[in-house]
Simulated scan of single mutants.
Amino acid sequence: MTETLFGGLLLAALLFFVSRRLGLPNFWAGILSGALPFLLYLAYSQQHWTGGDVLAIHFAVYLANAGLLMVFGGMQQKKQKLHWAPRLIIGFFIGLVVLNAVLLSISSRGLPDSISNLFLPHPANETVHTAFPGLIPHDRNKLYEPHLARLDQQRHLGWKIGIEGWDTMRSKTPSTITLKLDDAQGAGIAGAEVTMGLWRMANSRDDQKFTLSEVSPGVYQTTMTLNDSGRWILDLYIQHGEDTYIKQQTLYIDGD
């Protein structure tokens, strides 16, 4: 989102000054610099939808930028120096755009590790997630009750779980996910039933569920294909005898 926001502004400025050089009137140069980047973003969002709020932010920023370019072009035509008041307004909008870009980046990807580790609590063996988790369907709220009830039991189990394959996973591309399950002493736990449920926030039609097969003692694998990029919620469920382990975390899957 940061790339499309600033990239669109650079494209708008380029379009404005090139069209003015080619003799296009100031008004129509401003319209072109605002409309074309937004239309390109509309086409881009058809394949990489990030929500109506992000679309509205792009529209507002592109529109404001077009207005500022038109004011600047008009001042150039009249060969007038820019008064301090318009300069202050332009500075305010530039700061607003930068602030929106920073907030969009944090909401989609979270704080950089260097910042989150410095200011936020970081318990041992836990990952701090600072990205906005998105909307949660009402029918999914019931999953939290059994999860909270089993937290104490899971802490006493002392199981060590490692998952590989998420870092290289791309949407619409088959990927192999490997889970390694060890007990408190570090020995592999064989014979467990391992399932992964992946669901999209506020869109239950994309939900998928996978069962992992044991390939060696304590090592379980599956091949999965997710049909869209963006943020997913992982529900990990492990059953071994009478012991149950449930974990939920957020994943971000890149496009193909």
Results as ranks from 00 to 15, higher is better:
Gly73Ala: 06
Ala190Thr: 10
Val18Ile: 14
Tyr44Gly: 11
Val54Ser: 06
Val219Arg: 15
Leu118Ile: 15
Pro137Trp: 11
Arg87Gln: 14
Leu103Asp: 13
Ile189Asp: 06
Leu120Glu: 09
Leu69Glu: 10
Phe132Pro: 03
Leu181Met: 13
Val215Gly: 06
Gly51Tyr: 09
His138Ala: 15
Thr223Leu: 00
Pro174Trp: 06
Thr211Ser: 03
Leu103Ile: 07
Arg205Asn: 14
Ala43Gln: 13
Ser171Asp: 13
Pro86Gly: 01
Asn125Thr: 14
Pro217Gly: 11
Thr178Pro: 00
Leu15Pro: 03
Trp49Gly: 07
Arg200His: 12
Met196Cys: 04
Gln153Cys: 05
Phe210Lys: 04
Asn125Trp: 09
Ala13Glu: 09
Thr127His: 12
Arg109Asn: 03
Trp84Phe: 11
Gly74Ala: 10
Pro146Trp: 15
Leu236Met: 14
Gln239Cys: 02
Leu32Pro: 02
Ala13Gly: 03
Ser105Leu: 01
Leu14Glu: 08
Thr244Ser: 13
Ala192Pro: 00
Ser19Thr: 08
Leu68Trp: 04
Gln154Leu: 05
Ser204Ile: 12
Leu251Glu: 05
Asn203Cys: 13
Arg109Met: 03
Ala66Asp: 04
Ile94Phe: 10
Asp139Phe: 05
Tyr44Pro: 02
Pro174Gly: 04
Leu251Asn: 10
Leu251Gly: 02
Gly30Met: 06
Asn117Phe: 02
Leu82Pro: 01
Leu10His: 03
Gly218Met: 10
Leu157Gln: 08
Val194Ser: 00
Gly134Arg: 01
Gly51Met: 13
Met201Glu: 12
Arg231Lys: 13
Asp206Gln: 14
Leu69Thr: 05
Ser105Arg: 03
Lys142Phe: 08
Asn117Ile: 01
Gly134Ser: 07
Glu3Pro: 00
Gly34Arg: 02
Ala66Gln: 02
Phe59Ala: 10
Ile89Ser: 00
Thr127Leu: 05
Pro25Arg: 02
Pro112Ala: 12
Asp53Val: 10
Leu39Asn: 08
Asn141Ile: 09
Pro86Cys: 01
Phe38Arg: 06
Trp166Gln: 04
Ile177Pro: 00
Tyr237Arg: 06
Ala149His: 11
Leu10Ala: 15
Ala35Pro: 08
Leu198Gln: 03
Gly230Cys: 07
Phe92Leu: 03
Asn100Cys: 15
Asp256Lys: 01
Gln208Gly: 07
Gln153Gly: 05
Leu226Tyr: 01
Ile136Arg: 02
Lys209His: 09
Lys180Trp: 08
His129Pro: 07
Ser171Arg: 03
Val215His: 08
Asn26His: 13
Arg140Ala: 04
Thr178Gly: 02
Gln76Met: 11
Trp232Glu: 04
Gly8Phe: 04
Pro217Trp: 13
Thr127Tyr: 09
His83Phe: 07
Arg150His: 09
Tyr245Ala: 03
Asn65Asp: 11
Lys78Ile: 05
Lys142Trp: 06
Asn117His: 12
Asn26Ile: 07
Ala12Glu: 10
Gly30Val: 06
Leu143Trp: 05
Asp207Met: 07
Asp254Gln: 05
Lys247Pro: 00
Ala60Trp: 15
Ser204Thr: 03
Leu40Lys: 02
Gln248Leu: 11
Trp199Ser: 09
Ile253Cys: 03
